[in-house]
Nucleic acid binder design. Sequence first.
DNA 1: TGATGTGAATTTTTTCACAGCA
DNA 2: TGCTGTGAAAAAATTCACATCA
Lengths: 209, 209
Amino acid sequence: MKQPPEISISRVAVYLRFLEDYLKENGPQSTINSSQLAKFLNINHHQIRKDLSYFGKFGEPGVGYRADELKERISKILGLRKKWNLCLCGLGNLGSALFAYKGFKVMNLNIVAIFDSNPRKIGRTINQVKVYDPANMQGVIDKMGVNMAIIAVPTEAAQDTVDKLVRSDVRAILNFAPIKLSIPAGVKLRNVDLATELINLTYFLSSSA
Amino acid sequence: MKQPPEISISRVAVYLRFLEDYLKENGPQSTINSSQLAKFLNINHHQIRKDLSYFGKFGEPGVGYRADELKERISKILGLRKKWNLCLCGLGNLGSALFAYKGFKVMNLNIVAIFDSNPRKIGRTINQVKVYDPANMQGVIDKMGVNMAIIAVPTEAAQDTVDKLVRSDVRAILNFAPIKLSIPAGVKLRNVDLATELINLTYFLSSSA
DNA sequence: TGATGTGAATTTTTTCACAGCA
DNA sequence: TGCTGTGAAAAAATTCACATCA
């Protein structure tokens, strides 16, 4: 059982999301096998079993998986049984949207602090969450027990923000700025770039036209 | 020169984004070589050259790349020299945010129509863009010349939305719903799932604690 | 029998090493 | 000399095939 590749972790997260819906429709006693799951998710069944095998044994030969058990165990493995405290850096267009997005809370991911350098925003409270001056980042992060961060600041402020976060001991960061940030070892950074995703599509349309 | 892998297309899009900034700072005559670019972007220089090699020859041995020429040629290859008309499906939290997000327009990506099934939203106009009833999708898409779509509807409505889009001849779709959608061959679909990205981080923190 | 879990084979992606050009 | 572009090597991910177990 080797260290799971990052991409398997992502897929297992997708399996988990699916299982939640599946359980609601089919009841807590339901079972599912890798071929059914593969069909629903539009991928191949070898991959599902291989992905799961990095994390342990979950099924019964000849039967499949107990859906509720699989869900619970994956959920635990992915670290979703405990609550996480996030800070959101940048309360512009994107930051505001991410704050409003309901998909996080469901997963025990709670934004507990917001940082924005705009003096007009600092001090405001939105849905019980306060907007702080980035200059006070370290103190706020300590006080609130923040363990993850979302970067939604303008590109030119992103590296500075990540440096501040790292100095405040945040070790897991999701970055929306279209730039590859430098981080020290031991810190995990994931990037989401919306425009880049769309460019894959424009290339597809242009090259297949 | 083989078909470029999807991941190379994504990276080349990142190179393009960087070159735009680089040109602003260093002037239109500036050059850059793969090692410099690699350093800035925090990746390795072999990869940059390999990625570019899928698309053609761009540099001068012993010198590097003319930044403006590289930018222009990449931009053309990625299909960003023409204007694209997008429709946004779903004007909830996330949809509203995506609509407000300024990173798209810069890349010639324009949202020209919005679909939302909420009767209170249908008929409204936001920033010159009208909100339409999804029932009229095909007609609107034809009329507005929509060639790409963004799906930001609730998960349970996503497959239905994609089916409608496909029937309306949209062949490139960016999906934010946490579900693997079924599409026919010839249609390109990319998925962005924000919660899944964060789950990679919770796994990292849990397993390294 | 029917499905899992996993080594092995295959394919893809990344990294390397170097020929060739300015 | 210095850097590009690319075939080859290495590494990683995906797919396959099958032993194994209920």
